[in-house]
Structures are given as C-alpha cells and as structure tokens.
Amino acid sequence: MIHTLETVIREHPFFHDFPEEHLSFITGCAKNVQFPEKHFIFLEGDPADEFYFIREGMVSVEMVIPHLGATTVQTLGEGEILGWSWVSPPYRWHFNAKTLKRTRALVFDAKCLRAKCEEDHNLGYEMLKRFASIITSRLDATRLQLLDIYGHND
C-alpha cells in the first residue's frame, strides 16, 4: 500500500485530532529522507531549523564529553520525534543526532513552520501543545534516569 505524505502525517499519533485546516500546510513542510548508518543528522550548535519523525531505524542523541567521547543520552526509534530545539531561541541544536542504523524519516521545515506559527497563533498553539507533551515525557524520562531507580551497590 502506498502511503502519501499526508496519510503518514495524519495517522501519526502526534497529529491526532490536529485541525484539518492546518494539515495541508504541515504536509507542505515535510519530505521523506533516508540516512545511512553512523550518519550525523545534526550537530550540537548548528541551527535547529527542522525536526524529524523517525519512520524506521534508530537515532542516538549524544553529547561529546571530554575524556569520555561521544556519550548517548537517549536513543529514539520508529514513531518517535527527533528535535525540539527549533521551538525556542536561540534555535540551535543542544546535542548531536547520529543514526545507529539505516534510518528513514520525515523531515519538517521548521523555519517555515516557525514563521507560520508566528502569523497564525492557532497553528502555533496546536504545535506547541504537542511539543510540550513530548518535552514533558522526555523530562520525566530524564528524571527517572537521574533517580537511578535500579540502584547499585557501589
């Protein structure tokens, strides 16, 4: 079965109940991309002008720590959204994103979306609601990681 971009977007839980009138604009901002294994999708400090829906594969969100090298803080896989630094200034990536496997994704032109959200606050609110929920989940997950819930007998 061939999935059009619009179907893929419409069926993604992120866009559940998204107002019909904005869907074609969102679809216009998206395109399919593929990355080979060990490819840097973006680098810390670079402009954050897009975000991604991972359709297949795995991406490591990592940071280079002196003496430790590249350290993965989180991995993201099928169905997950990569990148929310485009939402708030200074619009620069805070981490590196590197593929651990061949990865297929939808990339969204966030620069264009950001401008549209400034113009149309209804769209801006719908997008922010959804990204706030992702940010909350990631914050919860980070807190659990920090709690070291499995404990250890050091």
């Binding site: 795995m58 490591s60 430790l68 090298g69 590249a70 350290t71 993965t72 803080v73 989180q74 991995t75 896989g77 997950e80 651990l100 989940s137 919860d140 997950a141 659990l144 990681q145 819930i149």
Partner: peptide
C-alpha cells in the same frame, strides 16, 4: 559507553 548499540533511556517510553 560508546560500544553499546542498543536503546538508551528508561524503559517506560
């Protein structure tokens, strides 16, 4: 560490 090729993060997500 960098040699691990599986998931990183808590289990609940």
């Amino acid at each position: 560490a960098s040699g691990w090729r599986g998931n990183v993060g808590v289990v609940t997500p």
